[in-house]
Nucleic acid binder design. Structure first.
Lengths: 342, 342
DNA sequence: ATGAAAGCGCTAACAA
DNA sequence: TTGTTAGCGCTTTCAT
């Protein structure tokens, strides 16, 4: 971690025997400079390995930063990649650059990352909150004019623009789809921790659909996991029940991998499935996977648009933007329950 | 884009009626301060939404920043998400934070992003170069001690640590696998632009495998695309040839989606496929998809480790780290070619 | 417990 | 064509 002191403008100037400003001029092609001076300056720059300190520069020049800081729980989840893409689409034309970091769903890391962004004077802060994180400390920043937008999940302790999927209604629609197909026992495979906003909302949608159809809510049909392997186990467990579900609702894209892997492994093509959040190649599984598709790019674009309006001076009250999900029937959700004696 | 000037230490000091240093002391818990002063300062900080300017701070304090800047061509591609995850794993324990931005595979945006990172004095710069980008301008930074690492693709005009997959050998192995299965006409679906490093390397591996088996290289069996839809079209085109391929090598994860979608759509379960780069749920397609798996997490970890060594003072010559790929036979690559009269 | 002055590295503004 | 002064926002050093 050792670092020899980096040479400064003044060092170069001394080496050449000119003033710092002259060196600055040569380097930035600012005012005029004699070819001779220019040559000697460049020579000294190379010799000393001088490297301008952009921080000092931008401190002097001032001007607002042009960065949007985005904190996500997981860089590896394509959902957040897509959201980030949407944000970029929205803000890039306005001269803003998106910088993204991961909290790993850890409140402390999220806080550290936010501090990093704030200290670097991002002009917008976007956060997909980690479970259990608190955001009251952002109040003053927001009050001072820095747009703060929550994505995918609401924040805690701060009222500000928030962009979320229609988790509850979407899941409800997916489960209703299964019920309409004749299913009466429908399993729910959710992610952990169970208090995660999206998990809660989706499970609420699941219950609402059951209630809407007058079906009982059997807690034994609700299973948890935090990775594909766990989801696979949970799936196997539900299907091994004495009175097993004939259909499953997979709570997110990660769970879906495990659910589908287990169904494939056990050769159970008779179990109907609806998955929340679309996945690549869902259409070519056999049967093709019916999903409640989210629209992550639109979510990012909405967040970007909201931030731009705030930057434009809009001080109206915080909005919650609900981005619609869409039921995409492809086959797995249309499997009828096996005939059974009543 | 209006932004009210952000309050400074001096603003807070004025508000409270103390000196800037006192505010600084309270905020940094430096010297002592009376409870009363402390309270009033914090109040003013909250009221004004003061946010310390870390740029100014670190300018005064000196010392390198604790950020790793990563530039990738596409935030939406899970491959880069996984690489980023690997980098984080490697550097987080050393107090470094990863910040990531997208160049959208545009050299100008890449350059702008790099400048953004440099201006923030990142302590490490990692780049998955955009096609056509030049990196000679980073020479002085590297010389000044800032580690620069290229990922997935080599840079141009700068010799530095580089982490890439064994694209050529991996593809060669994949194609050899098909040849060993009896295939003689093997199509290659590559991404665009064709001069992209990974594309060139993989195609070279394809040719090497053909040459190694004494098979002719029929340029008519090589097709290009830049998205799944294009890959689907390319697949259909190849299969409609008078003397069509009996097997396909898909050049990357994005192409694979299109290739598999087209095979599914046309019901062609008789075409053998090997895909470069693993994809989620490859194992549950029918037939299951044989892949040449990359190891993006390891790539990220290697890059992180290399950077840490450089930060530790290693000034040895630039290394190129080749991360092995692995052939994962799952079924689609083991389909025999249809019997044919000779 | 608090403040004043100097300075981190750079560049605008104004000389010369 | 080049130099001088001042100051960006903060922290260090030394007073008070």
């Amino acid at each position: 971690m050792t670092a020899t002191r980096r040479p400064t403008l003044a060092d170069v100037a001394r080496e050449v025997g000119v003033s710092a400003k002259t060196v600055s001029r040569v380097l930035n092609e600012d005012g005029p400079s004699s070819p001779e001076t220019r040559r000697r300056v460049l020579e000294a720059v190379a010799k000393l390995g001088f490297q301008p300190n952009l921080m000092a520069r931008s401190m002097r020049v001032g001007g607002p930063d042009t960065t949007v800081g985005l904190v996500v729980p997981d860089l590896g989840n394509p959902f957040f990649g897509a959201v980030a893409g949407g944000i970029e689409d929205a803000v890039h034309g306005h001269g803003l650059t998106l910088l993204m970091g991961s909290s790993d769903d850890d409140p402390e890391r999220e806080h550290a990352l936010i501090r990093t962004f704030l200290a670097r004077r991002v002009s917008v802060l976007m956060v997909a909150p980690a479970v259990g994180a608190d955001h009251a400390h952002l109040k003053s920043h927001r009050a001072a004019g820095m747009p703060v937008v929550f994505l995918d999940r609401p924040g805690n302790g701060l009222t500000t623009d928030t962009v979320v999927s229609s988790n509850r209604a979407g899941t409800q629609e997916g489960v209703a789809h299964l019920i309409a197909g004749g299913h009466r026992r429908i399993g729910f495979i959710g992610d952990l921790p169970a208090r995660l906003y999206t998990r809660r909302e989706r499970q609420a949608g699941y219950r609402a659909a059951l209630a809407g159809a007058g079906l009982p809510h059997d807690r034994g049909l609700v299973a948890d996991a935090h990775d594909p392997a766990g989801a696979a186990e949970a799936t196997a467990r539900l299907l091994a029940l004495p009175d097993p579900p004939t259909a499953l609702l997979s709570g997110n894209n990660v769970m879906t991998i495990g659910v589908m892997t287990e169904l494939s492994r056990s050769g159970r093509k008779d179990v109907a499935v609806v998955a929340f959040d679309d996945v690549p190649m869902a259409g070519i599984l056999e049967p093709a996977l019916t999903v409640v598709a989210q629209n992550p790019v639109t979510m990012g674009e909405s967040a970007g648009a909201a931030a731009l309006e705030r930057l434009g001076g809009d001080r109206g009250r915080a909005r919650t933007i609900l981005v619609d999900t869409r039921l995409v029937p492809r086959g797995s959700g249309e499997l009828p329950p096996p005939a059974r004696t009543r």
